[in-house]
């Protein structure tokens, strides 16, 4: 999932100040699951904003299933129409989705989108993927060094590993120690002898903003039309 975290209330207050009608719009998928932008968080934030912004602002609340899909965004057209600004509690994709569907309305980001990851334990989320566009998990024991090594090293751990953790923080397990342990458990340590050559980063963000066009699906759509 995409993991996000609410911005400090003061930052949100600054952004929202001056608007008279605000729609706080949650998202029912990723940000609900990471307790940042679901129905409950929308309610709490709206209450806090009413108390810090007072009578000057009228706040409406809503949640859509996913802010990244037109069909769900279409369901809140009326509420968006009543608002001067939408405070999105979706990820950065959701914020931009609202803006693309309703270009006349000001969209404010209520969250900082943090990473793609999973819930490691209740209340703890960890990054797992950076969408580099050319997956090599089959070569690294199913653990991603691009996302989980602070230096994205592809050929083993740097010299800064101590007690299994990364030099930048005792809370960060070293990705390459995890890879080593996993491959040892699977009896496949010989994989670590291979040199992963210089990468072509074109498929990553370095190649520019990415877009996927599926001709097979496009044909189906065009036939229907």
């Amino acid at each position: 999932m995409i993991v996000a975290q609410q911005k400090p209330l003061e930052d949100i207050r600054q952004m929202a100040r001056g608007f008279r009608r605000l729609l706080v719009l949650g998202c029912g998928t990723c940000t609900t699951i990471c307790f940042a932008g679901g129905e409950k968080e929308v309610g709490l934030l709206a209450t806090s904003l009413r108390s810090v912004l007072g009578q000057e602002i009228e706040i409406e609340e809503a949640v859509v299933q996913r802010q990244c899909e037109w069909e769900f965004l279409d369901q809140v057209g009326e509420a968006v129409g009543r608002a001067e600004a939408v405070l999105s509690l979706g990820c950065g994709v959701g914020v931009q989705g609202i803006g693309e569907r309703y270009p006349g309305v000001v969209v404010l980001p209520g969250l900082n989108t943090a990473f793609m990851g999973l819930t490691e334990a209740p209340g703890i989320w960890g990054e797992r993927c950076m969408a580099c566009g050319d997956c090599l998990l089959h070569r690294t024991g199913g653990i991603c060094p691009v996302a989980r090594c602070a230096k994205s090293l592809l050929n083993g751990p740097c010299g800064g590993v101590q007690d299994g953790h990364c030099e930048i923080s005792p809370e960060n397990p070293c990705a390459w120690v995890l890879i080593y342990d996993r491959l040892m458990q699977q009896g496949r340590l010989e994989q670590l002898e291979e040199i992963i050559p210089v990468r072509d980063w074109k498929a990553s963000h370095s190649g520019g903003p990415r877009r996927i066009v599926r001709p097979d699906l496009r044909e189906m759509v065009e036939e229907e039309v």
Binding site: N155, G156, P157, C158, G159, G160, V161, Q162, D163, G164, C174, W176, V177, Y180, D181, L192, E193
Partner: peptide, 11 residues
């Protein structure tokens, strides 16, 4: 001297 010690020669 860094972890994992048995891996260091491989590197």
């Amino acid at each position: 001297f860094a972890d994992p010690l048995p891996y260091r020669v491989v590197r």
